[in-house]
Computed example of a mutant assay.
Amino acid sequence: MKTLIIYTHPNHNSLVYSFLEKVIEGSKENPNIKEIQILDLYEESFNPLLVFNKEKRRRDMYRDPNLEKYREQIMWADKIVFIYPIWWGRPPAMLMGYIDQMFASNFAYKDKGGLLPEGLLKGKSVVCVSTMKGPANYPLLYLNNAHKILMKRALFSYVGIKKVKFFEFGNMESPKGKQTEKLNKVYRYFQSVK
């Protein structure tokens, strides 16, 4: 299994970065994971801004030469792991800008003229590891599970990815947030996932 890890946080001294380290550590100990690539969107200085004009059309985004490297990473991967904080009930703008550009028509999906497109990323799986300051049940009770619905239904299912696993950790700024326990949970998962 080839694993692409997409990390989205500007601070390498953060708890989110500790989750990245645990994902890498567990993955390296997993005999099912043969290769790992890491994409740190901030370190990469990924440009999340969409630009469309006479020369650059949205319908041609799937062949933008500036995004070729990232398209190759997605096609290469069997499993895509997203690691990010939840800010204001959703992933950071940097990650959303990556998604807007990478999950483009004629690369991630193809319109068939009907209600739903053909997902072109079938067979891949996704794991989302996210942290938030608020309580763990906040997204479910106050936001009607908007984050998971956004990621699973509106994005991954749309492009053909059916196998999606979430680690959504709340209370991460609290001294009683059980950070070590949650870090170890992620580590153990990646140590044995198939």
Rank of each mutant, 00 (worst) to 15 (best):
T3H: 03
I6S: 02
T8L: 00
H9L: 08
P10F: 09
N11I: 13
V16F: 02
F19V: 05
F19H: 09
F19P: 03
E21S: 14
E21F: 11
I24S: 02
E25W: 13
S27W: 08
I33Y: 00
E35T: 00
I36P: 08
D40C: 05
L41N: 00
S45A: 09
N47L: 04
L50I: 15
F52S: 12
N53T: 06
R57T: 15
R58M: 15
R59W: 08
Y62D: 13
Y62C: 11
R63E: 11
D64A: 07
K69N: 02
Y70E: 12
Y70L: 12
R71Y: 15
E72L: 11
I74P: 09
W76L: 01
A77S: 14
D78I: 02
K79R: 15
I80M: 10
I80Y: 04
V81R: 00
I86E: 03
G89P: 02
R90M: 13
P91V: 04
P91W: 07
M94Q: 15
M94H: 10
M94D: 02
M94L: 13
Y98D: 10
K110W: 09
D111W: 04
K112M: 15
G113F: 06
L116H: 06
P117Q: 09
E118W: 03
G119S: 02
L120G: 04
L120I: 14
L121I: 11
K124S: 01
K124L: 01
V126P: 05
V129W: 00
K133H: 11
G134V: 10
P135D: 08
Y138R: 15
P139H: 13
Y142A: 10
N144S: 12
A146P: 05
A146V: 08
K148H: 00
I149H: 09
K152Q: 06
A154D: 14
L155S: 00
F156Y: 12
G160N: 07
V164Y: 09
K165E: 06
F166D: 02
F167I: 07
F167Q: 03
G170K: 09
P175L: 04
L183T: 06
L183Q: 01
K185Q: 11
K185W: 07
R188H: 13
Y189M: 00
S192L: 06
V193W: 05
